[in-house]
Amino acid sequence: MLTLQVQKPKLILEDGRRTDGRRPDEMRPIKMEVGILKNANGSAIVEMGKTKVLTAVYGPREMHPRHLALPDRTVMRVRYHMTPFSTDDRKNPSLSRREIEISKVIREALEAAVLAETFPRTTIDVFSEVLQADAGTRLVALMSASLAVADAGIPMRDLIAGVAVGKADGTLVLDLNEEEDMWGEADMPIAMMPSLSQVTLLQLNGNFTPEEFRAAIQLASKGIEELYKLQKETLTSKYSAYKEVN
């Protein structure tokens, strides 16, 4: 019989560590960089472990077609897309239903942060390309998008930082890896504007008791603080160099 019988691996090992050696509340190594594309008005690349997402922002610019422009605010256009070589098996480059949904939740999260009324009748285009997919792509995309929007000089209420919390073998874990994403009992991506303590994205896939749900939010908040600090450092380290000129 040509079938692939895959057994669920043990996700939490005897020493309490995860399959990649992390503690339950430990995130993967993170790298962030802004202003890496020449043509885009703003750009950023964010890596979390083996997940890597590049985002470019164009705008605010004139909206085409014109009838879609809004008189009192900018129109955000967001595309989350995975390159065909970002996954183990080649991904069809056309937009999947998953990508359509994720584009929507990322747009809604970004719209909470961007001061949309500043640029009436315009559009701001946000293009995120997942270069490597290894769990947590929507949040890495959202973080790179928020950095790229900031890099484009578009006024925002706050940056957006986000991380997934989940449950693997009954243990709450921060920043799921691919195995935990696939075999774990829960996956809850959550993103916040940390300075304002506002949640801008929240989804849950899997199951939690109400108590676990609350503990998971606490755990995520810790990770989000850390990510937010890195985001600010990334921006200041690039732009502090220009400070002396004025």
């Binding site: 929240l202 849950l204 939690f208 749900f213």
Partner: peptide, 11 residues
Amino acid sequence: IVGIQKFGSGT
């Protein structure tokens, strides 16, 4: 809880 989704751009 077996699923959550936040809809809309508010916080």
